[in-house]
């Protein structure tokens, strides 16, 4: 099965059918997606501003990272699941959407970065002002997550 076949299968699945025919289904899932966005945005911002040395400078960065890790991954899960439901409504169209492709590439990059280099940067910053690399990692992380959001907004516009 090619990737496109998977997208078509999703839009023809019971989930896709429900999203296409229900009167309020799409709107409600969209609201859940936005609520997840607020929580994900808040947790990403707190970790990255700590990594930048803007807030909570007294605490080791990894402590802040661990402190919001569950919230970050939990809200990301909510966003991915509600995102799949939104996608199922018009998966065939999204497959060709440059904004959607861009969003998925940025999302993959943001998640991989979070679990690898970003994590290493968190471990390096004990207290006080961070060195250059952790701050650079924070900027990359913020730009990647912001990019996911902006590309996501563009799906409906382009």
């Amino acid at each position: 099965m090619s990737l496109q076949d998977w997208f078509i299968a999703l839009s023809r699945s019971p989930l896709g059918h429900a999203m296409q025919t229900s009167r309020w289904g799409f709107a409600i899932v969209e609201m859940v997606h936005l609520l997840g966005l607020a929580l994900l945005g808040g947790s990403v911002l707190i970790v990255d501003l700590r990594l930048l040395g803007v807030i909570l400078k007294g605490e080791p960065a990894i402590m802040i990272g661990r402190g919001v890790n569950r919230l970050l991954l939990g809200s990301l899960t909510v966003m991915v699941l509600s995102g799949i439901a939104l996608l199922s409504e018009e998966a065939g169209k999204c497959y060709y959407s440059p904004a959607f492709r861009c969003k998925m590439a940025l999302l993959a990059a943001a998640v991989v970065f979070y679990f690898t280099l970003h994590r290493q940067a968190l471990l390096r910053v004990q207290s006080g002002k961070p060195t250059l690399w952790p701050r650079f990692a924070a900027v990359i992380s913020l730009l990647l997550w912001l990019g996911v959001g902006v590309a996501g907004r563009a799906i409906g516009l382009l």
Binding site: L34, A38, L39, G41, G42, S43, G67, R153
Partner: peptide, 30 residues
């Protein structure tokens, strides 16, 4: 949408801290 994410996301951090779900080791006032 972005500014509401900033507003609600950061308020939620403080709310969840007080409920005791996140950042338990950091004081509420910090």
């Amino acid at each position: 949408v972005l500014s509401i994410t900033l507003l609600v996301g950061t308020i939620a951090i403080l709310d969840l801290r007080m409920i005791g779900l996140i950042l338990r080791s950091v004081s509420v006032r910090r």
